[in-house]
Simulated assay, not measured.
Amino acid sequence: METSEQVKQIKRSFRLFMNGVTAASMRQKGLEYKVNWGVSQPDLRRMAMQYDKDSALAQALWNEKGVRECRLLATLIMPSDKMSEDMALQWANDITSAELAEMLAFNLFQYLPFGYTLVRQMLDKDNVSRICAYNLMCRLMKRGIKPDTDTLDKLLSATSVDIHSADRQLLHSLLNCLQYIEQANTEKAFEVRQLLNDNGFDAF
Results as ranks from 00 to 15, higher is better:
residue 2 E to Y: 13
residue 2 E to S: 10
residue 5 E to Y: 02
residue 7 V to K: 03
residue 8 K to G: 01
residue 11 K to A: 05
residue 11 K to H: 04
residue 11 K to D: 02
residue 14 F to R: 07
residue 14 F to G: 04
residue 22 T to P: 00
residue 24 A to M: 09
residue 25 S to G: 12
residue 27 R to Q: 06
residue 27 R to C: 09
residue 30 G to C: 11
residue 31 L to E: 15
residue 34 K to L: 01
residue 40 S to N: 11
residue 40 S to H: 11
residue 40 S to V: 08
residue 43 D to L: 08
residue 46 R to H: 06
residue 47 M to W: 03
residue 47 M to I: 12
residue 47 M to P: 03
residue 48 A to H: 07
residue 48 A to M: 11
residue 49 M to A: 13
residue 51 Y to W: 15
residue 51 Y to V: 12
residue 53 K to D: 10
residue 54 D to S: 12
residue 55 S to L: 07
residue 55 S to N: 11
residue 55 S to M: 08
residue 56 A to K: 05
residue 59 Q to N: 05
residue 59 Q to K: 13
residue 60 A to N: 05
residue 62 W to K: 10
residue 62 W to H: 12
residue 64 E to K: 07
residue 64 E to R: 09
residue 64 E to F: 11
residue 66 G to S: 11
residue 66 G to M: 13
residue 67 V to K: 04
residue 68 R to Q: 00
residue 69 E to T: 12
residue 72 L to C: 06
residue 73 L to W: 13
residue 73 L to I: 15
residue 75 T to I: 03
residue 75 T to A: 06
residue 75 T to S: 13
residue 76 L to D: 05
residue 77 I to S: 11
residue 80 S to D: 01
residue 81 D to M: 10
residue 82 K to V: 01
residue 84 S to Y: 13
residue 85 E to D: 04
residue 85 E to L: 11
residue 86 D to G: 10
residue 90 Q to S: 13
residue 91 W to M: 11
residue 91 W to V: 12
residue 95 I to E: 07
residue 95 I to S: 07
residue 96 T to A: 00
residue 97 S to Y: 01
residue 98 A to I: 07
residue 99 E to A: 05
residue 99 E to S: 12
residue 101 A to K: 03
residue 102 E to S: 14
residue 103 M to G: 00
residue 103 M to C: 02
residue 106 F to Q: 15
residue 107 N to R: 07
residue 116 Y to W: 03
residue 117 T to W: 00
residue 121 Q to V: 13
residue 122 M to V: 13
residue 122 M to A: 09
residue 122 M to C: 14
residue 124 D to V: 03
residue 126 D to P: 01
residue 129 S to P: 01
residue 130 R to Y: 00
residue 130 R to D: 02
residue 131 I to F: 11
residue 131 I to N: 12
residue 133 A to E: 03
residue 133 A to V: 10
residue 133 A to H: 06
residue 135 N to S: 05
residue 140 L to E: 14
residue 141 M to Y: 06
residue 142 K to Q: 08
residue 143 R to E: 06
residue 146 K to E: 15
residue 147 P to N: 01
residue 147 P to K: 00
residue 149 T to A: 10
residue 151 T to G: 08
residue 151 T to D: 08
residue 153 D to L: 14
residue 153 D to V: 15
residue 153 D to S: 13
residue 154 K to T: 10
residue 156 L to F: 02
residue 156 L to S: 06
residue 158 A to L: 02
residue 159 T to I: 15
residue 160 S to Y: 04
residue 160 S to W: 07
residue 166 A to V: 09
residue 168 R to H: 14
residue 171 L to F: 12
residue 171 L to T: 06
residue 173 S to C: 10
residue 176 N to Q: 10
residue 177 C to D: 04
residue 179 Q to S: 13
residue 179 Q to G: 11
residue 180 Y to T: 10
residue 182 E to N: 06
residue 182 E to W: 04
residue 182 E to G: 02
residue 183 Q to C: 00
residue 183 Q to A: 09
residue 183 Q to H: 10
residue 185 N to H: 10
residue 186 T to V: 14
residue 186 T to M: 09
residue 188 K to F: 15
residue 188 K to T: 13
residue 189 A to G: 09
residue 194 Q to H: 15
residue 194 Q to K: 11
residue 199 N to D: 01
residue 202 D to P: 03
residue 202 D to C: 00
residue 203 A to I: 14
residue 203 A to F: 14
